[in-house]
Design a protein around this nucleic acid. Structure first.
Lengths: 350, 350
DNA sequence: TAACGGTACTAGCGCGCTCTAGTAGCGCGC
DNA sequence: GCGCGCTACTAGAGCGCGCTAGTACCGTTA
């Protein structure tokens, strides 16, 4: 029986388009050695300015572009960082956007792999490793701490936005306590006392934010008002939580602190549609200050994570691990700060 | 005992982590040839079942993973598709998610490159080509038609969601006319006559949707009610348009058809915050049915593009070009259909 | 018996590049 | 004359893999 995929011999040369020119073509064109062309393209000393000129000119004329795969293979260092992110998470998207400039600055190329429903994180990570990523930047990974530790033993790993007890990886994230504290301070300052928290279950960062919320409430003597509603880091999570609160006979809290922006947006939506005035009847505060909260239609009060610095630190951490200047296992935390926008305000008395 | 570490000269490898195992390590471990291991990993005939078992077992034990870069280099065909998308566009994200399964099915690996503000499309595309993408899938590219044509001359290109006059590339998109027609039919059926269109300027797909809106209005004898408001395919575009409409002395239209979902969401937000009831005072209809519209808090009436099929057709088109079974230049169009949700309803008389 | 065909494997070249270890040619000082 | 150091270049060995063209060893068949 022939295999179902008989793409074999016909596999060799795809379209009869003109073959991609290689370094050898450029070298032959000029009558010099491949090594010289290589030198020029790597911007290494050892070629005269005139020769450089001629090489670039010939390369442009032939349409030569360096082949990354071959370069990666030949070079000890691939200078490629693999980035895992969740396509649907706007905060991750922000991080990815912010990672590009620093990576470029330090001379790294980026390969992205998206965790999507049909393709779990493990597979996405394997793809990154397979593409010769030297180090991995994982945005809010949901795989087990053990798996992350295994990965960390194989290559440098930097985890963004998630705490880990003990894994041989670097961690770059924000302090949750001050952020949550600022949220509660802000809301209490506005006159709120019934401040609920819609959490993110066990999603990256969620346990810490939940704890920070509890601490902040206690610090304000509001221990008895602590109310934690199970949620998720998705719009649906917020929607479900909001529906639950509306269906509940108990009074609505006057303020809700959500575990991330997507969740907050879910809350916002269901409340708005139910005729609950935001922020008059319920104030809503998110977390992350993803572009979807800040730039768009939401005008959400939220906790801003310093995304550009998070991204920079993450890339630098990876670079340091790669250069071997220190052992993995560092934890870097940044301050985050409250951004007051339109979804929080003083409660109205009922 | 453990594999002897044949360290090469002066250790160029970054961290002193255990060197990545290669096929040779696996072969040595079993006392067989590299070629055998290669066979097994490529799932080719020529190895006994027992041997396969042993190879896999040894590979797992050593932690061997095939190296893509080397594989790409050695293989005539790289079997890698490069995907360009805009990180912030939820519809693009949907497409990326949908592309993965088909690509996997046809045996292609995916490399993503995001167009982000700090990194224009040209650079993102160069990165894809440099990583040995055999073909490119471009989600709503904004570069010039000429640049796309140049690209298409170099390698197979499939453009998603944008019309082109003449370029040697395949195009996969949706018919705009029936979708827009359905929108106008729906709104007229509800009793609307003042139906405005917030367009997307020259963004991919926008001109066609604008034209389709005009045609549909004319078909309903509403040529004199045609009202096109300049917008953009972003939330800000929608917000600006909405603010403009509110500031305008003229009466609000009773319905607004936005050029994409993000734009519709911007409209939705500004209107809602201004106290305009949706859909009682103004109905809003989007375009794309991106997850942000469908699954989330928006409950937006919109035109659904058949994302899974778009994705499948795009990958298949790339595959066909690569196999050389036809010349590039095909245009594939899919039906799209109206999805009625909560943001459209009958107008209230004033 | 030889000839044959099939299975299970191996040798070794080459993909396009990087990089070490060179060589050739030059001017210079002694 | 010699060595010296410098610049400008080249030869050639890999990087980890895929793939063609083998070889060795069966069991059949005429």
């Amino acid at each position: 029986m022939t295999p179902p995929n008989p793409r074999r011999g016909a596999d060799r040369s795809p379209a009869p388009r003109s073959r991609k020119p290689t370094m050898a073509d450029v070298a032959a064109e000029l009558g010099v050695s491949r090594a010289l062309v290589s030198l020029v393209f790597r911007d290494q000393p050892g070629a005269s300015p005139e020769t450089r000129e001629r090489v670039f000119e010939a390369a442009a004329r032939l349409g030569y572009k360096p082949d990354m795969a071959a370069r990666l293979l030949a070079r000890g260092r691939s200078k490629v960082l693999g980035v895992l992110f969740t396509a649907r998470n706007p905060h991750h998207v922000d991080l990815v956007e912010a990672i590009y400039p620093t990576a470029e600055e330090l001379g790294y190329d980026l390969v992205l792999s998206a965790a999507v429903p049909s393709r779990d994180e493990q597979k996405a990570i394997e793809a990154l490793v397979g593409h010769r990523s030297e180090a991995l930047l994982l945005c809010g990974p949901t795989i087990s701490e053990e798996d992350i530790a295994d990965l960390g033993a194989r290559l440098p790993v930097v985890v963004l936005g998630r705490h880990l007890k003990s894994a041989p990886v670097d961690i770059v994230t924000s302090y949750d306590r001050p952020g949550a504290r600022e949220v509660v301070d802000h809301l209490v300052g506005l006159g709120h006392r019934d401040i609920a928290h819609v959490d993110g279950g066990s999603k990256p960062g969620a346990p810490e934010r939940r704890r920070a919320y509890r601490d902040a409430m206690r610090a304000h003597g509001l221990a008895d008002r602590i109310r934690i509603i199970p949620g998720n880091h998705t719009e649906e999570g917020g929607q479900d939580a909001a529906r639950g609160m509306l269906a509940d006979d108990a009074e609505l809290p006057t303020a809700v602190f959500a575990s991330n922006d997507q969740c907050a947006i879910g809350l916002l939506d269901v409340f708005t549609r139910a005729g609950v005035k935001i922020p008059e009847q319920v104030s809503i505060v998110g977390y992350d200050d993803s572009h979807i909260a800040g730039l768009s239609h939401i005008d959400l009060t939220t906790v801003r994570q310093d995304v550009p610095r998070l991204a920079r630190l993450a890339v630098e951490a990876a670079d340091e691990q790669l250069r071997g200047v220190r052992e993995p296992g560092a934890t870097l935390k940044l301050e985050s700060k409250l951004v007051v926008r339109g979804t929080s305000g003083p409660p109205t008395q009922r």
